[in-house]
Design a protein around this nucleic acid. Sequence first.
DNA 1: CCAGAATCAGCAGCCAGCCGGACACAGCGC
DNA 2: GCGCTGTGTCCGGCTGGCTGCTGATTCTGG
Lengths: 238, 238
Amino acid sequence: MRGFSRTGGPSTPAPVGLAAAANGASTLLDVMRGLSGCVIETVERGKTIFFPGDPAERVYLLRRGAVRLSRVYESGEEITVALLRENSLFGVLSLLTGQRSDRFYHAVAFTRVELVAAPAGSVRRAIEQDSSVGLLLLQGLSSRILQTETMIETLTHRDMSSRLVSFLLVLCRDFGVPGSEGITIDLRLSHQAIAEAIGSTRVTITRLLGDLRQAGLVQIDRKKITVFDPVALAKRFS
Amino acid sequence: MRGFSRTGGPSTPAPVGLAAAANGASTLLDVMRGLSGCVIETVERGKTIFFPGDPAERVYLLRRGAVRLSRVYESGEEITVALLRENSLFGVLSLLTGQRSDRFYHAVAFTRVELVAAPAGSVRRAIEQDSSVGLLLLQGLSSRILQTETMIETLTHRDMSSRLVSFLLVLCRDFGVPGSEGITIDLRLSHQAIAEAIGSTRVTITRLLGDLRQAGLVQIDRKKITVFDPVALAKRFS
DNA sequence: CCAGAATCAGCAGCCAGCCGGACACAGCGC
DNA sequence: GCGCTGTGTCCGGCTGGCTGCTGATTCTGG
């Protein structure tokens, strides 16, 4: 046990098989919850969901919160490959082949997280039984790809200032909650965490965030960043 | 017409429906070729497959060659989001929702390319009729995600030397053909193209490649790069 | 098949931006 | 109280971006 609690089995014994197909409004969450062997888990902030080297046997759907996927190097350095938002699918490696394979990412709960986990075999069977499941999973993965590619765009910006701004905009899209003064990013982000995500250092992030704050573009209150005007911020990079 | 020739319709009227399911060895290519409205296209090096702003109505499977997906900015700058290898799925945006949506990437044939294109509706219908299609597409997308995330790893390396080396290794994996002296990357890469892919500049790439060549790690002959020993090269970054 | 055009490769010099390391201090939980 | 994590700041040094130029290679249209 890795420090997460289980509320065993599907909380709602949702309909499987053709039932889901009949119901056009069915969601990925419904589908996952209906799978045999499915487990709903709660993981506390900072706890690991899976380690690199663990066997990849389950597929996860992030129901609530944020998950960080990262790569760990021998040097101890850790770089963030993705910050997953709600409704993201992850751990899909296990679907890839019939072969046993191992995780090579480190998945950590970035906030308190609720997730639905189902064995890869179950997922495969469900797809075979009910074609609409396949379509839903495909849509889930497609949107993951788009998110990831946006991140690549962010990372190819040359100067750190542009990278940071671009990253903040991504976060607004994925984790932003609109408020009276602008959009607040609903994550407690340390400068270190940002640095690991955009390939920079803690010190540089501190400096650049300070610049943005002084320019009146963002506000930072207890690790929560508020972007006053995303459009104005976007003009920060050509 | 965007400068590509069509060999209309499926070349082999492959079995659709449950037939594919029965045949466990069926591939993504077989499936795509069997779809109604499917078209096989040949695109010459440098020609565009779709422009940003084009309606997204088809899904593509890259059958032969390489395709570059890039983002174009008002400034005229262009950054590469993905270099797709054979058997990659792209244009999946069209699957996402029932909504009409537009491309926001620029897809260019990086080499002479053969691709199979099918209307998104057809793909959706095929999934409903035959569940094994969904599974194959899922596997295709999963491997796309892994490729993309590898690219993120490459881009978060801080110094350009590491980034270049890491990128070369990715290219070896995706486009490498083993030869007597090492692995040759089967693409004609200009320094500019590399720079656009790893977020650097032409001049820097020229210098760094020069360094690698002088160190006896790579050889460059008419834009084709040969990596003598990938393992030795990998040691170039900590 | 050739000539001109366009793209590509290589070199050098300048300088800003960022990394690395170090240090002080503020919160926060134990 | 003490330790730990996170923030803010300073400074020296070097990487890598920018500009400008030249010669080589490739593409294109007659």
